[in-house]
Design a protein around this nucleic acid. Sequence first.
DNA 1: TGATAACAGACCAAAATGGTCTGCGATTAC
DNA 2: GTAATCGCAGACCATTTTGGTCTGTTATCA
Lengths: 156, 156
Amino acid sequence: MLKLTKKVDYALLAMHFMGHQDMDQVSTIRDISENYQIPMEILAKVLQKLSKKGLLQSHHAPKGGYTLKRPIREISILEVINAVEGPIGILSCSEGQDKVCQQIENCDIRSPLERIQGKILWLLENMSLEELSQAVPTTGGVIHGSFDLLGQPRYH
Amino acid sequence: MLKLTKKVDYALLAMHFMGHQDMDQVSTIRDISENYQIPMEILAKVLQKLSKKGLLQSHHAPKGGYTLKRPIREISILEVINAVEGPIGILSCSEGQDKVCQQIENCDIRSPLERIQGKILWLLENMSLEELSQAVPTTGGVIHGSFDLLGQPRYH
DNA sequence: TGATAACAGACCAAAATGGTCTGCGATTAC
DNA sequence: GTAATCGCAGACCATTTTGGTCTGTTATCA
Ligand code: SF4
Ligand code: SF4
């Protein structure tokens, strides 16, 4: 539970991969699939969804492939997740969930749980794909006195 | 994906329920199950796990039942989740996941994703069961100039 | 015009989830 | 002492989600 699906993983890898190329250079499914050892067919589906949601531009021809429609710094993790998995929520009673929770009539913890959900979504929305390139230094590199929104130290 | 399981939902409801009783007053599975319309058998299992993990004390007799071992303000949401679902992680490559990720050799986004995971766990660890009782006011109540760690306003 | 690349969707196996059923063990009220 | 009341334990099962395969079609251009 509370786990990212493989499809999301693949999507993030693919987007990250393309982010490290010139904006106009195309990447094929084969390129990405070989680079990360991802089954081609399933990666194909994932990229299709990303392109339908306007995150990627597909070039439908020989020597074709995919290009990013926007620079990765303008794309959030949440956008990618939503593109491949649809609207998400940590609760069975969240907006867009088809099944209705049996406890919803008697539940008295819904609103606080929705607050947690909001925070998690906020987190994913405010992290861009660009940050996937920033490794956390294991030693040194801390910007003294500077903390992010979770109270954790910033790095150079 | 990224959804809390029903068992966790039940656990949180149950813990919340007991938190609203005197520490020494026992609650039976039947009490809780009727209050929230939860199937008795499955709630039983959940409470067993909570008791094995030391969050609940079971009283094994007629007029018996469960009591909290600690006040709810000293129990985090994460503790409850870990008790009923085991160690969690949003990644397939997280500690304690049995299956190994096929991409782990070529993955170049692991460390940033682990940072997200860390933030989410931090969030759950630093929210106590007590906060499940605090509804967010829809209007008014904001403490001016006071924000929590996610930059959201605090309430009275 | 055919090789190349994306598109589309049916199909399937394995795993996770949510739930049921059946019987046992401890305690204590009577 | 024993029967009623409670939790304990685990096998079992149906449904949903997931991860993946297979087969074929369509658009483009060298
Ligand atoms: S139990 Fe409450 S919070 Fe959980 S899904 Fe049902 S309504 Fe939402
Ligand atoms: S792809 Fe990278 S981050 Fe995702 S599970 Fe595999 S190793 Fe971990």
